[in-house]
């Protein structure tokens, strides 16, 4: 077991192929989870900043709860809680050209756990980015006659989202590392 002899197993049989396949699955989960978490995170951030008090408090509680729970707890909970029927539906609707790991209903638990947790974290990052803009930006947009959505889309979000790029990237790296956790519920 000295030097490179310890890595002899890598070239034996199909081991290298297995490792690369596993790597690919991690990558796929990461990409899908990143896209979904970014979308859900933006939605949550907008709800959190909404002028409707009920919506903003509800979104705040949601974000604070899911941000402060261990990701593994969420994944294991969903793994045990999501009913078999939902898993079966997932397996039915998943097209056959998707990779084998995605055909398993367990992916539903792993993926939704990753998205639940990371969308809450990203929502908080995006909220901070949006709120770091001077108030004058929103006021100027309104004064120019833009409505709420137009002001968001044309003035606030382009600037706010640019400010939160570094924090978002580091969270997405964490997400990519956290895709290892789905192995605990036996996604292989």
């Amino acid at each position: 077991m000295t030097g490179f002899a310890a890595f002899g197993w890598l070239t034996e049989g199909n081991n290298l192929r297995f490792i690369l396949e596993g790597f690919l699955i991690n990558l796929e989960i990461a990409v899908v989870a990143i896209i979904l978490a970014l979308i859900a995170g933006l939605g949550l951030a907008l709800l959190r900043l909404s002028r409707n008090r009920v919506l903003s408090v509800a979104a705040g509680v949601w974000v604070d709860v899911f941000r402060n729970l261990p990701l593994l707890l969420l994944i294991l909970f969903l793994f045990l809680w999501i009913p078999q029927s939902a898993r079966d539906t997932w397996e039915d609707v998943m097209p056959s050209w998707m990779p084998e790991a995605w055909q398993s209903g367990l992916m539903l638990a792993g993926l939704s756990g990753l998205v639940l947790y990371n969308s809450a974290v990203l929502a908080e990052i995006m909220r901070a980015g949006i709120q770091s803009l001077p108030r004058g930006q929103a006021e100027a947009a309104h004064a120019l006659g833009l409505n709420y959505w137009k002001a968001m889309r044309l003035v606030i979000l382009p600037q706010g989202l640019r400010r939160m790029v570094p924090a978002t990237v580091s969270q997405l790296i964490t997400l990519t590392k956290d895709t290892t956790l789905v192995s605990i519920i036996a996604i292989v």
Partner: peptide
């Protein structure tokens, strides 16, 4: 520290 509290769950789950 908060991240570490959450990561400690991995020790019990793995």
């Amino acid at each position: 520290i908060i991240a570490m509290i959450k990561n400690s769950a991995i020790l019990g789950g793995s």
